[in-house]
Design a binder for these strands. Sequence first.
DNA 1: CGACTCTGTCCAAGCAAATTG
DNA 2: ACAATTTGCTTGGACAGAGTC
Lengths: 385, 385
Amino acid sequence: MASEKKEARLRGRPSGKRPARSSSAASSTAPAVASTGKRTTIMDVAREAGVDFSTVSLALRKDPRIRTETRERIEAAAKKIGYYPNRLARSLSGGATRVIGVMLTEMSRFFATPLEEFQRVGEAAGYTLSVHFSWWDMERERKGMQQFCENCVEGVIWAPDVFDTSLRETATLLHNAGIPAVLLGLIHDDDTRTVPCHQIGIDIRSGLRLGLEHLLSLGHRRIAIATAAGMEGKRGDMFQLRLRILRELFSELGLPLADADTFLATDHEHGGIEIAMQLARRPRADWPTAIFAAEDSLARGLAKSLHALGINIPGDISLLGYHVGSDELMGPVPLTTVSLESGNFATRAIDLLIGLMRKKTPAIPHQIITVPSTIIERESCASPG
Amino acid sequence: MASEKKEARLRGRPSGKRPARSSSAASSTAPAVASTGKRTTIMDVAREAGVDFSTVSLALRKDPRIRTETRERIEAAAKKIGYYPNRLARSLSGGATRVIGVMLTEMSRFFATPLEEFQRVGEAAGYTLSVHFSWWDMERERKGMQQFCENCVEGVIWAPDVFDTSLRETATLLHNAGIPAVLLGLIHDDDTRTVPCHQIGIDIRSGLRLGLEHLLSLGHRRIAIATAAGMEGKRGDMFQLRLRILRELFSELGLPLADADTFLATDHEHGGIEIAMQLARRPRADWPTAIFAAEDSLARGLAKSLHALGINIPGDISLLGYHVGSDELMGPVPLTTVSLESGNFATRAIDLLIGLMRKKTPAIPHQIITVPSTIIERESCASPG
DNA sequence: CGACTCTGTCCAAGCAAATTG
DNA sequence: ACAATTTGCTTGGACAGAGTC
């Protein structure tokens, strides 16, 4: 019986397949699956090299127990028959799938750079990305997370965009599955803090406040707001939120804010021209001395438009941007802007996650990191007059 | 010996774990992994329900061989101890991973809608997305595809953006692995056609030609071009290409094209204002009667800018857009545009791929589908004068 | 010469499910 | 409803054979 078993091991699978030698007439790049319909396995390599299949496993992962000469022979055999490992089997046995789950609400421009960043850092650390969109449907999000668990992802990055009570349940789901997770990009109000999950968030209020204080310190007293609060959908909600916070900050700081100085565009990308024209039609004496555009793409469009209309930045008017993504185009005037500190917050998120995945013990007291904003002074803001 | 084996089966794993009953004091949502560090398996459910683990396997997939009563008992037990299946094991045994690999060059705005579309259609068909970016690095692309193979994805969608000889090798790699693939969005010149892979592509030339012919048929004889050929990077290359083709088409159609009527912006999103201002500064007699903006985002910005400057579309000038993605915002004037036929070409790609994955035999003669363009007539184009 | 490391290789028990008799 | 087998790989331990004291 023992010999029969050994025989089976050498044959690989029980099907009466011809020994590999017979394929020596084939081209050097063996069409592993396409012809036979069966993927080549470690057993095929073992047969080809004349060793036990476990030796192949050890050799291919450069285990010191295998002599160099033997290893090279095995590697040659593997290459010859076009073998590559089956990660499913490897993961099932070894535990690590090397997959990170990424749960986003939608593929907005806002997440483009973060997503690339997850890939860049993840790839360097040997991870692959599994991406899922929820479209703000919490049930879809939960199901996606469930799939992440079933697929044994090793970590999850998660940007739900808005607070919802279901976040707590989802976080618990992940926690029970032993999967470290990083919640990305929420504002850190009290509700958010109760979600039991590591968090990297943005403090919109303090960023906007920083911007206003910067303009105040330059001597501006009549500051206008430009935002795309007229946009539809969730994106518009975010601009609405910024507008609301800005209004609160104006009153906190004792600044007046005329309705005429609250410019609401319907589109953050192409809305700049509307605002520029509104401004241009007014008598110069009735201009604010600075505009705080609560989104960089709007600020860039505004800069281009003002420039095209012959309005000088910052000579005639100062322009301050605000952004939470990464820097992009400069436009006609290098834009002074409120920016997240220490580069990209997406990088911090993926770095944190990879750290959590490495040490198997997920620190129970969840880190809640608020990425502070900073002013990047370029050329679009100056003192008035 | 047999009884010993049975004992092992019932115990599940060899570690001297306490029977599940002892956890009955725990909360209803059992913290499966978080406490023990071990995931609950089908064996745990079996022990809880007092049946064999294979019975659990059958019951959870509603096999008719299992009595309803037993099944319900098993389902209750599974729920109680927080069991969910391990797809790794399921895939290893059953073959289907239900994962689609998506290989993109970068997370540009261009791919946002397609990516969401892959998720939407894929999710409906029970698939999950594994996303990888190559950043035009063909070696990185090859490695990513290799990983897709190792991870046993069931299909690949692939948008390399530019033709490269390595595409042939990569296609062969996938073919040898028996993984159906759809190559997305290349122009179908002769080089592209030699890549042994199903393809869904865009015929830029015929789309642009259609646009020009539409303007001609409306009576326009002096047509301007607007494109963001001044942009940097790969995106700029694409606009350069459109510009080159447009120039060729002008000469083929015997149309004059003055340099003054070739508007080159440096930014497709905020470039509209520059062009609008250039136009506004000219005497009215020196205007073209129509502008063909070779990218919808540029066209929208241009529409907004012209509108803001008091220039009437299409009364004063007609504006024709061009796009290969999905429709977005309308702007001040609903834009007449050259669009891909039958909706979204991304949908066609994912539909094709899912079809290929279903029938295991990948049709050897590769389909090369060129998605034709069509004119969507809205309100921004009219006859001149 | 036997007890002793080493080495290089092999064995078999896993991993968590599906499948089939 | 159960038992046995299968999937492809990892891994700790077993086990020869060579080298050392």
